[in-house]
């Protein structure tokens, strides 16, 4: 079995079969990383460059660990997003790194479509580690992996994504992935932060958090992406949390088991309270653990594509 694409640019560019293959492979790697000796030689002699043009902690470390556990050689490059707009172009930066014989690129970039752009101009394989408001495919894959662990087959499962949908690459990638796996998706948030045409992607829209939570089996609580908002979309974080915060009284009043997810970093007291984030129903740290296994699967499978 092999992936249908030589890059992972976004979930919309891969098939449902690809997703299933990645999740199955991740299952094996999850077992590997829980062994006393976590390292396997699968990517020996493969050189990977992690290019982070935007701040990231967990995604960067997660990729780095995944690469190390697969025995790849790695180099890291970080640049502030402000330097992207002036000075050396993205293409020049990447070509300079490729000149040193690099096989794969893992890239986080503040501008949507940057990995797609790059894939047309360079020979290396590219993994999108988040590009602006476009996609964050490995996050969606690890979310699906975590959901499957809790819910089993996702066909017909009801998943809610709550928060700033407009500025969220996590939401977009999750919608594409969950759709491909047959789940039902609802997005919930203030009307100013829900794209006007989002329903055309086959999702339901709701602006009331309680109704959303009553409907779903799992809720993915997103962070408000203040850094990507060039204007004010709501009056204050205080008012946002009055309308869209998942807190203990609300959770308990639902009277049902709910899988609570968060892609991190959490803003405790804004979209989610500490009591909920630290509760048994939250799988937030499981997601982080699964992230390494899923990224190992992606790296391993892409390395095998001609």
């Amino acid at each position: 079995m092999a992936l249908s694409s030589r890059h992972l640019l976004g979930i919309k560019y891969i098939t449902a079969e690809d997703i299933r293959l990645i999740l199955e492979t991740a299952d094996n790697f999850k077992e590997v990383i829980n062994r006393p000796i976590k390292k396997v030689p699968s990517l020996r002699d493969i050189t990977i460059a992690n290019l982070f043009f935007e701040n990231s902690t967990r995604t960067r470390i997660s990729f780095e660990l995944a690469e190390k556990r697969l025995s790849a050689d790695i180099v890291n490059f970080s640049a502030s997003s402000s330097s992207v707009k002036k000075g050396e172009t993205l293409l020049d930066t990447v070509n300079n790194i490729l000149a040193m014989k690099v096989d794969m690129i893992v890239m986080r970039h503040p501008l949507p479509g940057a990995p797609v752009f790059l894939s047309k101009h360079i020979p290396a394989k590219i993994i999108n580690a988040g590009d602006g408001t476009h996609e964050h495919p490995t996050q969606a894959l690890l979310d699906c992996f975590s959901l499957k662990e809790k819910l089993g087959d996702l066909k017909g499962a009801r998943i809610a994504i709550v928060g700033d949908i407009t500025h969220s690459r996590v939401a977009l990638s999750n919608i594409f992935a969950l759709n491909k796996l047959g789940a039902e998706v609802m997005v919930c948030g203030p009307p100013t932060l829900i794209p006007r045409h989002i329903e055309s992607l086959g999702v339901k829209v709701e602006h009331n958090l309680r109704k959303t939570l009553e409907w779903c089996d799992a809720a993915n609580m997103l962070r408000i992406q203040l850094e990507r908002q060039d204007i004010k979309y709501f009056p204050s974080l205080r008012e946002y949390s009055m309308l869209y915060q998942l807190n203990l009284p609300l959770l308990e009043s639902l009277g049902k088991e709910l899988v609570i997810m968060h892609p991190g970093p959490i803003n405790r007291g804004v979209e989610i309270t500490s009591e909920v984030a630290d509760s048994d129903q939250a799988v937030i740290l499981k997601q982080v653990e699964n992230g390494v296994a899923v990224r190992m699967a992606v790296l391993f499978l892409l390395a095998g594509v001609k």
Partner: peptide, 21 residues
């Protein structure tokens, strides 16, 4: 229109590019 990059619609939503209505 602000910092919009393309026409608002299904495609702008799919691409995550800011749409101009």
């Amino acid at each position: 229109s602000g910092t919009g990059q393309m026409e608002e619609g299904l495609i702008s939503t799919r691409l995550g590019l800011k749409g101009i209505p």
